[in-house]
Amino acid sequence: MKKLVIMLTPAAMLVLAAPFAIAQESQTPAPVAVDTAKALSEWDKVYAVFSHPRCADCHVADERPRWSGAHYGGTRVHAFNVQRGADGSGFGSPGLRCMTCHFSSNSKALHGPPGAENWHLAPAEMAWFGKVLGRNLRPDQGSLAQWQPQLEGYRGACSRRQTGRLGLGAGIGS
């Protein structure tokens, strides 16, 4: 009898849940009103993070991270021949991994290296260095759609990795 109850329980659950599943599938979602001005205003906040040197400098298409920002006087290739690494991991070459200088937290020295757990270059397919200029990546220009899958996948990972806190760009500049 106990075996019969165990075997019939999943079947009973399926039979009882079926009407609810069908009801959910038949509902059409309510139309969403889009406030373009507000969306662009919010996008400007996201753009400020993506274009900030702390993010953009490691989102490169080639093998070399960049140094940029006002205190560098422009953009230049990272010193010390730092590269993505032959294994493609983005953690650097053996003997000179990113974590050699980029520790688990920011340096306290003025213009010292920023830090976060597992510091490394973003995958090459996530390159946006030099692409996030002006309105290139603005949603009103239609180009955001091509980036959406990658941005969604990296949004949380980048913010936690680069800042040690949740939230896109939290602590940028700190």
Rank of each mutant, 00 (worst) to 15 (best):
F20M: 15
L168F: 15
T36D: 12
A127Y: 03
G156F: 02
C55T: 08
L151K: 00
L40M: 07
G92S: 00
P139F: 02
A23G: 13
A157H: 12
W67T: 14
H52Q: 01
T36L: 13
L8H: 05
N81C: 09
A124F: 11
L40V: 02
N106C: 05
C98N: 04
Q83F: 10
G69V: 03
W147Y: 11
T163Y: 08
Q24G: 11
L110H: 14
K38T: 13
S93F: 00
A122S: 15
A11P: 04
S143A: 14
G112M: 03
H102R: 01
P113I: 00
C58M: 08
N106T: 08
L137M: 13
V132P: 07
E125L: 08
L137I: 11
S174H: 13
K3Y: 12
R160I: 14
A86E: 08
L151Q: 01
V132L: 11
G90M: 05
D57R: 08
V46Q: 03
T9E: 05
S174P: 15
F80T: 06
V60Q: 11
V77G: 03
I6G: 12
A48R: 02
H52M: 00
E25I: 07
V132I: 15
G156W: 04
G134V: 09
D44V: 07
D140S: 08
C158W: 01
R160M: 14
I22R: 15
L14A: 11
G115D: 00
P29F: 10
L121V: 13
G74T: 05
W67F: 15
A70V: 10
H71P: 03
V46K: 02
G90W: 02
M13W: 09
A109H: 10
A23D: 15
K3E: 12
Q27Y: 08
S105W: 06
V5T: 04
W67C: 11
S143R: 14
F20E: 11
G156C: 02
R138F: 09
R155Y: 10
Q150W: 12
